[in-house]
């Protein structure tokens, strides 16, 4: 279950994966990637040599490996306090912008994409928004496009989060945004809120980005925790480069930036505003 004693093995595997596929997991954090690979071997009943052999010879299997490595945990308005902060403090600053460019980096199955759409709609900002959402997992993207989730296990939590996001103001009826069908066990975003997002398969580790514009808001929640420090730095630098001055980056509630970046962003909880210059204290 924990780190295999032969830690070389999975590192070797990652190098082979990098050589014979477009995917590079070599800078993922050791502990978590080791655990994911052990899970794959367990689920597919594969020894390490078998896994390597299959990876070299079967591109479809490689896609399955990528899906299995990816962690897709997400929920509607996860950490409602953050969404409340966005609704009350951050999004209103875009009122006079002609356009709001938004990127969900590592959007998973889309719950947080729709969380933001709901807040934008509530603030009458949705028509100004250009929303891009990327993920390494094709399966997750397809699910995100459908915007339909299981009712059981989710609804109670989603409703509590929804109410938390609107605390201190008029909470709209959740049915304004979702069709709820208990017999089919679904909670689905209403059709008028679908089709407003450009979903693109993209591996964050790769240098080139699939868009040409800069952003006012970048969401990257609970993704960086799977990367090692060096890769985190690289990605955060890329976010910084692609934010307009004053633009905001939103991380997971238990993710922070290391020392160097503390001068490039002004932190307010998990919301990081890109500053124009270094804060030099002499």
């Amino acid at each position: 279950m924990q780190n295999s004693e032969l830690s070389q093995t999975y590192k070797e595997y990652l190098l082979i994966l990098k050589e014979c596929s477009p995917y590079d997991f070599s800078e993922y954090s050791d502990n978590s990637i080791d655990r994911r690979i052990q899970k794959i071997r367990h689920d597919y009943h594969l020894s390490m040599p078998d896994l390597i052999q299959k990876t070299k010879s079967d591109p479809e299997f490689v896609e399955q490996v990528v899906e299995a490595i990816t962690v897709n945990t997400t929920e509607l308005f996860r950490d409602p306090k953050v969404w409340n902060q966005l609704r009350q403090k951050v999004l209103p600053t875009f009122k006079n912008h002609p356009k709001i460019n938004i990127w969900h980096a590592g959007c998973s199955t889309g719950q947080e994409v729709y969380s933001l759409i709901i807040l934008l709609d509530d603030l009458n900002l949705l028509d100004k928004a250009a929303i891009y959402a990327t993920d390494i997992s094709q399966k997750a993207l397809e699910h995100a496009k459908r915007g339909s989730y299981r009712f059981s296990f989710n609804y109670e939590k989603y409703l509590t989060n929804f109410q938390g996001a609107f605390e201190q103001s008029d909470t709209p009826d959740i049915k304004k945004y979702f069709n709820i069908n208990e017999s089919k066990d679904t909670i689905s975003i209403k059709p008028q809120f679908l089709g407003r997002v450009k979903y693109i398969k993209h591996d964050l580790v790769k240098e080139e980005l699939p868009f040409y514009n800069k952003f006012d808001l970048i969401f990257c929640r609970n993704v960086l925790i799977y990367f090692n420090g060096a890769l985190q730095t690289k990605i955060v630098q890329r976010f910084h480069d692609n934010l307009f001055p004053g633009g905001n980056m939103v991380l997971g509630s238990h993710e922070t930036l290391n020392g160097f970046f503390k001068t490039k962003f002004a932190k307010n909880g998990p919301v990081y505003a890109r500053t124009n210059s270094f804060h030099l204290k002499y």
Binding site: S29, S32, R35, R36, V71, I225, G252
Partner: peptide, 9 residues
């Protein structure tokens, strides 16, 4: 000597 968090299953 650090802590790692994860949102795995």
């Amino acid at each position: 000597g650090t802590i790692a968090l994860s949102t795995e299953e």
